[in-house]
């Protein structure tokens, strides 16, 4: 499984498509870092406790973010929570789809079990996401240190919290793409399946929880369901919501595994 996962990592750094994705991500991230993060952090710092931002928005989320010791990382946290899942869906769409269409999976399956391929690829995608998240965090920490070099320790501490939480947030998205990829024959088809499943599930769960208020737990079915609540927490308290993405991931991986085991290649 680890051989396959490591091979996935080489997909990012040894192929033209992977390098282009990396370049695109770096450029987008540079722009985010330079403008929204840098500017918003300046704005946050200029605002005194009880200042204009709090009085204007007056929300628990804003209050919570203003309490962060490193404002750059507070802004990064919000942006990453909403933006990284989109990157994740695009990056991880082709876990097995095009290899299935090309017949490469057949060559692999003569040497590795279907579970090994499925979970190896999933693990590989997580490694790629871990690398990109680390890259984003390190660049933000560098930005912080350029402003104030005494913030190294709190920056590293907050980065660790963000890293763990981001990986937890991205887990079910990656698992969702592993599942749909096991049914698709191209990355585009996998993304379409994901969009369809997403829309149908959100409509269905929304309707069910309106009809049956006792079923409000259904709001937690979709990946990212905990993000709003996550923004109201700080520090390692954020892990109190970890069970939601972990359970979602287990369910989605189970569905993907069933498809992988039963499908004809």
């Amino acid at each position: 499984m680890f051989i396959i996962a490591r091979y996935e990592l080489s997909r990012l750094i040894m192929t033209r498509r992977g390098l282009l994705s990396l370049l695109a991500f770096s450029l987008v991230w540079f722009l985010i870092l330079r403008y929204p993060i840098y500017s918003a952090a300046q704005f946050f710092m200029a605002d005194a406790p009880g200042g204009i931002i709090v009085s204007f928005f007056n929300s628990t989320i804003i209050n919570n973010l203003l309490s962060w010791q490193v404002p750059e990382l507070a802004v990064l946290w919000v942006i990453a929570l909403y933006l990284f899942p989109v990157f994740c869906v695009v990056l991880t769409a082709d876990q097995t789809a095009s290899d299935r269409a090309r017949g490469t999976l057949r060559l692999l399956s003569l040497r590795a079990g279907r579970d090994t391929i499925f979970f190896g690829r999933f693990l590989g995608q997580l490694l790629i996401l871990l690398m990109l998240t680390l890259l984003a965090l390190l660049s933000a920490v560098a930005l912080v240190l350029m402003r104030d070099s005494t913030l190294l320790q709190p920056s590293l501490h907050l980065s660790a919290i963000i890293l763990v939480n981001m990986m937890l947030v991205l887990l079910p998205y990656t698992a969702l793409m592993a599942w749909v990829s096991s049914m698709a024959r191209s990355a585009r088809q996998a993304t379409m399946y994901a969009v369809i499943i997403w829309i149908v599930c959100s409509m269905l769960t929304g309707w069910l929880s309106r009809q049956f208020p006792g079923l409000s737990i259904l709001d937690m079915v979709l990946p990212g369901a905990q993000v709003q609540s996550l923004l109201q927490l700080s520090g390692w308290n954020t892990l109190s919501l970890a069970a939601i993405p972990v359970i979602q991931t287990i369910v989605l991986l189970f569905l993907g595994r069933v498809i992988m085991q039963r499908s004809d290649w």
């Binding site: 192929t15 498509r17 290899d99 090309r102 017949g103 490469t104 057949r106 060559l107």
Partner: peptide, 10 residues
Amino acid sequence: PQDANLDPRF
């Protein structure tokens, strides 16, 4: 296998 191909990217 008849229709199997290697990955063109590697």
